[in-house]
Design a protein around this nucleic acid. Structure first.
Lengths: 130, 130
DNA sequence: AAACCATATTCTTATAACGGAATATGCTTC
DNA sequence: GAAGCATATTCCGTTATAAGAATATGGTTT
């Protein structure tokens, strides 16, 4: 159960093209920031600030893993958030930008699976995102 | 089928509390402006401007009927808009403000049904909204 | 045509958002 | 502990948004 203003906050998060792309990627699972940069092809500042925006409003959560920071959808989402994210996913299904992003993610993703595995012991000297 | 930016525009329409209330009312059917003022209890300028905002972005349509202007949801909505409106309605179901607005509408509505009926011939001297 | 009603527009002010450049932070490795 | 990497934050200019006051518009009634 959520108030009217919380609902507005959800929509505020959804009314920016970059944030929609981020959320579309996040729907596939947790991702580290460097992946976002790669997948979206947008500058670091832009990505970082929009992720912060989403974090402040409780849509996503972050966890540090050595040098990297992994973002994922917030663990406990309200029914309302959940519904709207589902709706977004359905809409994003057929829209080119989003499809392209998901495709790129799929290619890049395996190279960094260890990050999400939470096993930094196996980490190489640097992220293989680039 | 809709572009990324059109999707953003939809969400821009949804990220204001007053517009959410307007859309919640509109989901019940077409309504004339004076009803909106009554139901929401907000000043005329505010209502009028937010309705204009929604009209410019294609979410609603308006039709003049004598002195009054009737607003309704756009006749041909994209799948995406339709989906998001449905999602909004589901969310609005349990939120007090929206429930209250729907209740007030139900009380006021019959007194002006003739307006929507498109039969200005039967119109009385003034709208009974006030 | 003048008065009147419902609605729209203009003007103004305040506030928030976006983006980029530069810089700071936190870990890690050497 | 110094250098290096990934990410975050600050600063700044620009643009969009929201709200209210005042005024304009378009249609109707007398």
């Amino acid at each position: 159960m959520v108030s009217q203003m919380e609902l507005v906050k959800i929509y505020e998060c959804l009314c920016d093209p970059t944030r929609l792309r981020l959320l579309n990627v996040l729907a596939q699972g947790p991702v580290c920031v460097c992946h976002f940069q790669d997948v979206l092809g947008e500058p670091q500042v832009k990505i970082s600030k929009h992720l912060a925006y989403l974090r402040e409003r409780g849509l996503v959560e972050s966890e540090r893993q050595g040098n990297w920071v992994i973002y994922g959808l917030a663990a406990n989402r309200s029914r309302e958030l959940q519904a709207n994210l589902a709706c977004l996913q359905e809409c994003a299904q057929s829209i080119p930008v989003f499809k392209r992003d998901r495709a790129r993610l799929k290619k890049i993703e395996p190279s960094c699976a260890w990050v999400r595995a939470g096993d930094p012991g196996k980490a190489p000297g640097q992220c293989r995102c680039g």
